[in-house]
Design a binder for these strands. Structure first.
Lengths: 187, 187
DNA sequence: ACCTGAACACCGTTCAAGT
DNA sequence: ACCTGAACACCGTTCAAGT
């Protein structure tokens, strides 16, 4: 119960940013969630930019860990690949939130440099994992695994975005099914 | 040269919203672009919600007209389909902007009801056009043309989002190529 | 009809001050 | 070490007033 404030701030800020983005994250509401005053956040993070960068960094670190777990839990690369869309489904299940990095990709123009960097790392981590698994699964030739990985990442992000705009998680599932039927993802 | 202020506001607001979203659209900067004061905007639009709804409505109306032109200009449905990604490429070419409705899909939680409605109509217009053209092109069976239309719309939006986050229009082009190679779009 | 200045409660941020 | 209140220039919005 003696969780420290820094950790509470990070957790609350992540949830807010997934629903409202960088621009929609405000210190007074965040502070209220945590149970402190807005000015106190500056004791832990020197600016909104630093807080957001820390949030985005933690975000891709967790994503990387989740993908490693997925690989470890899966019997073979094809089944790991089949389960990849689950990692993006999770956000929609939780109050129709979306991928932090997807939201921030839209807000690109308003993002401080340090935040942009972490957002791009999230994409890199996903593309690297997909590329590795696609190669191992022999779904495409090794040479084409990276372009295909990027295509899958972009398409899954687009599916999440569209499903969110309808607050309809079943739309996400049918989009993923269509990607499979079309051949973008292994059936 | 005697263009009216209402029209100028609509035009300037569209450009701002494509770069910064609904949350990032502010009346003082917008008014400065137009050459009036922030309070004057209220003479034309009763609120930010109304302005944004008008912007989003105009946006899908223009998109619908552009798609009709595309159909009319194309010799056959397959070539119309091949040129569909161009409609989303345009925004990136113009100062790395993105589709207004894609941005607002992310901002879903913060959108007034009237704006949500117009954003969804944009998606509907695109899916209806794609569905019609896919059927005519016999790319998929008539029954599967609508799910496929949705998949294409979501994937192209995702490609735009990812390319924007790198400010790299060539990434958009390679993503579209990968979609074609994978079979999502006709080669 | 079209526009403005001044005011309101709200934002990120700073800072001196409290324990 | 951890937190606060008060202040700053900024937001959307209102309104009485100007031409």
């Amino acid at each position: 119960m003696t969780e420290n404030s820094r950790e509470k701030i990070l957790l609350a800020a992540t949830k807010i940013a997934q629903a409202h983005g960088y621009n929609g994250l405000n210190f007074r509401d965040l502070a209220e969630d945590v149970g402190i005053k807005a000015a106190s956040i500056y004791y832990y993070f020197p600016s909104k930019a630093d807080l957001a960068a820390a949030v985005a960094k933690r975000y891709w670190e967790n994503a990387a860990a989740a993908l490693e777990t997925l690989s470890a839990e899966s019997a073979d690369p094809v089944s790991a690949l089949r389960r990849y869309p689950e990692t993006f489904r999770w956000a929609l299940e939780n109050e129709n939130r979306m991928c932090l990095s997807g939201f921030m990709a839209a807000e690109y123009d308003d993002l401080p440099e340090a935040v942009k960097k972490e957002v791009q790392t999230f994409a890199d981590v996903n593309v690297a994992w997909l590329s590795k698994v696609l190669s191992a699964a022999k779904v495409v030739s090794p040479k084409k695994s990276e372009p295909r990985a990027r295509a899958i990442f972009a398409a899954v992000g687009g599916a999440q975005l569209m499903a969110r705009s309808r607050s309809d998680i079943t739309l996400y599932d049918t989009l993923i099914s269509s990607y499979r039927a079309a051949g973008l993802l292994p059936a």
